[in-house]
Amino acid sequence: MSIFFILTAIVTLFAAASAMSLRNLVHCALALAVSFTGIAALYLQLDAQFVGFAEILVYVGAIAILIVFAILLTRSGEAPENSVLTSGWMAGIAISAMVFTLLGWAVLNSSAIPKENPPAPVATVKNVGDALMTKFVLPLEIIGLVLTAAMIGAVIIALKESSKSETAGRES
């Protein structure tokens, strides 16, 4: 592991922690974008260039912006006066610390983890495209269907629900 990898990981984790702990929601969304960029840099260093750039496109470009839009649409841009934590926050912190301890123990003591590092695999855009069009073509089509359904569903959920009262008003 190079020093650059460790630095990227530290920036990513710090940004994630601040995204979960800042009071102002807009600051949280910006820290989240920084964290996603750090994860994309980690992917690039793990020889997954396509996934790294897709991460920047999808997460930083779309999801972070969508979250900022939702924050502004729900008028929660200012920091709240009262507590931002739920009543049972100590139990939540304890459970997540236990989860991390268990995962870390399992990772450090597992015998299934190979000791030597294999050479870097090649995942060029051509390879990825070939695999998507041959071996993974059915999941690709299904994911297209899922995305269409989710888009239509999101529009319907977020639509104004005034149609029923409007028609009732017109009839009366």
Binding site: A16, M20, I67, S76, I95, F100
Partner: peptide, 18 residues
């Protein structure tokens, strides 16, 4: 694992839905 723990802690302790 640490990223997962951070996300989990935030998801169960914060009050805001976003």
């Amino acid at each position: 694992a640490l990223l997962f723990a951070i996300g989990f802690a935030g998801a169960v302790t914060r009050r805001h839905a976003i």
